[in-house]
Computed example of a mutant assay.
Amino acid sequence: MAILGRRLLSGAGAVGAAAATMLYVASPASAAIDRYGISTVGSGSYANAAGSIDFYTDGDDFNICDNSTDGAGVVGSWKIGSSGTVHDVYNGKGFAKCEWVNEQFAESATIYMKVCLRDNGDLKENTCSGWKKAYADGVG
């Protein structure tokens, strides 16, 4: 009986070691981020997270969303590299509506994005997020 118990424990140990090795090998690949997101900052009558921008690495898509009934629209901005040309997309569709934009980036691209509210044509600077860094391949 003792021999059978040792063999079972030995077999369980081998399976456990193999599983740990597989997890170790798989962990760098699972470190990729599928979505980067950032929201507006609350200011005055504008709520925190009233607007948002998400970047999806699988397909290089941006999603600019209006998350508030405040009447303001949302401007999503991005650039390639810290000194790249800024690209803006305005979403004035209203509350709970999003504007999808597809881009094509090199897998090695570093993307910076931010989001602000715009009300009656006036960009509300106090609601702007800071620039957030994202990676086209999802790995930093």
Rank of each mutant, 00 (worst) to 15 (best):
I64D: 05
S83A: 06
R35S: 07
M1R: 13
D34Q: 10
E103A: 08
G92R: 02
H87L: 00
C116D: 06
A106D: 15
V89P: 06
T127E: 05
A26L: 11
S52R: 09
W100A: 15
S27C: 09
Y56D: 12
G130S: 15
I64Y: 04
G16W: 12
F95G: 04
I38F: 02
N67I: 03
G51P: 06
K133H: 05
K114M: 02
G13L: 15
S77K: 01
L117V: 01
I33A: 05
D66A: 02
I3P: 05
S129W: 01
N91L: 04
S52Y: 01
V15S: 11
E103P: 09
Y46T: 02
V75E: 04
G13D: 13
A26T: 07
Y46L: 08
L23F: 13
T21P: 00
S10K: 04
G51M: 07
V86G: 00
T85A: 07
I111V: 00
G71N: 12
S30M: 14
V86L: 00
R118T: 03
S45C: 04
T57A: 04
D61E: 15
S83M: 00
Y36E: 01
M113T: 00
V75M: 08
E103S: 09
L4A: 12
D61T: 15
D60F: 03
I111L: 02
G42W: 02
Y90E: 07
S68G: 05
G140P: 13
V25G: 12
G121R: 08
V74R: 02
D88F: 05
A31G: 13
R118F: 02
A2P: 15
A50H: 05
L9H: 06
T85G: 03
K97Y: 13
G140I: 13
G11F: 14
Y56N: 11
G130E: 14
T57Q: 14
G5E: 15
K132I: 03
G16T: 03
Y24R: 11
S68T: 09
E107Q: 14
F95H: 09
I33L: 06
E103L: 07
F105I: 06
A20E: 07
V25Y: 07
S52Q: 06
Y56K: 08
D34I: 06
R118M: 08
I38S: 02
S30Q: 14
N48T: 09
N120W: 14
Y112W: 10
A106I: 03
G59C: 15
A96P: 05
G59W: 03
R6C: 10
D34E: 11
A47E: 14
S45D: 04
R6A: 06
I64G: 02
R35E: 12
D137I: 08
F62W: 01
A47D: 15
G140V: 08
R6V: 13
I111H: 01
L123R: 09
L123G: 05
D137P: 10
A31H: 11
L23D: 12
G140C: 10
W131R: 01
Y90V: 08
D70V: 04
K132Q: 00
E99R: 06
Y90Q: 05
M1S: 11
